[in-house]
């Protein structure tokens, strides 16, 4: 336990330092993007890292679900649950940020753009994942059922991303690091913010897994007390 606490503090320290550096970079150092959208482009430095992180979080759920199905070790189930929860947290922050950006740049709060649509579906899907978890009392059964959705859910995510892009008109990549006009400092700021988000994610994940494990321990102790 002590080791985990140490790791947690190390990760949060890294997150704070990188986030402060990233914010300074975003607002004071990086140049204004002049070609298309101007100042609001600066959302990119934190928005995209959050998108990547929530994708990674759901991938953690996928890998942990597969690991659970193969080993039937409940430890993996807590990792899967933690991953899905963090994916939702980062996803909701991402959507909130995105909505503010859409309002200021496109003039509307919401558009049925492929990216927004697919992310909304993904949020609903993992919301249902938690409804499923809460509807099963037996912890082994809960882990079994949740693991199947953890696997199928990620396949659905991939299909949703592909199909919404093909079936609706594709919205332009607003800003890409591969653009010739992008200065190195912009890339560096982005990478710093990405590192900060990953550190935050790691710290969160550690806490979540610990909490889930402790809850299970409490349940076991309660049962022993009743007996």
């Amino acid at each position: 336990m002590a080791l985990r606490v140490k790791r947690f503090y190390a990760l949060t320290d890294i997150a704070v330092i990188l986030y402060v550096a990233g914010l300074i970079g975003t607002f004071y150092i990086t140049p204004l993007e002049v070609k298309q959208i101007g100042f609001t482009q600066k959302i990119f430095y934190f928005h995209v890292p959050m998108a990547i992180t929530s994708g990674v979080a759901f991938a953690v759920t996928l890998v942990a679900s597969i690991a659970y199905l193969l080993t039937k070790n409940l430890k993996w189930d807590s990792w899967a649950a933690a991953g899905a929860e963090l994916g939702i947290i980062f996803g909701v922050s991402l959507l909130t940020m995105g909505i503010l950006w859409t309002r200021s740049t496109w003039g509307v709060w919401w558009t049925w753009d492929p990216r927004l649509t697919s992310y909304l579906i993904v949020m609903l899907l993992y919301g249902a994942y938690f409804v499923l978890r809460s509807s099963v009392d037996n912890e082994v059964q809960r882990a079994n059922y949740a693991a199947t959705i953890g696997v199928l859910g990620y396949i659905t995510v991939i299909f949703t991303m592909i199909s919404t892009r093909i079936l609706r008109s594709v919205h332009p990549v607003v800003f890409s690091l591969k653009d010739p006009g992008v200065e190195p400092i912009m890339r560096d700021t982005f990478l710093i913010a990405l590192g900060g988000t990953f550190a935050l994610f790691g710290a969160y994940l550690l806490v979540k897994v610990t909490i889930v494990n402790l809850q299970e321990e409490i349940e076991k102790l309660k049962e022993r007390l009743v007996k």
């Binding site: 409804v131 059922y145 949703t160």
Partner: peptide, 29 residues
């Protein structure tokens, strides 16, 4: 899956619909 849980058939559309979104989109077009 839903029949084995506490919520029974309430859970089926909640879980099934988001998973079927790609199918629905394709079928509609």
């Amino acid at each position: 899956l839903a029949a084995n849980t506490k919520r029974k058939d309430l859970l089926t559309p909640i879980l099934g619909l988001p998973m079927l979104m790609p199918v629905l989109g394709a079928a509609v077009s």
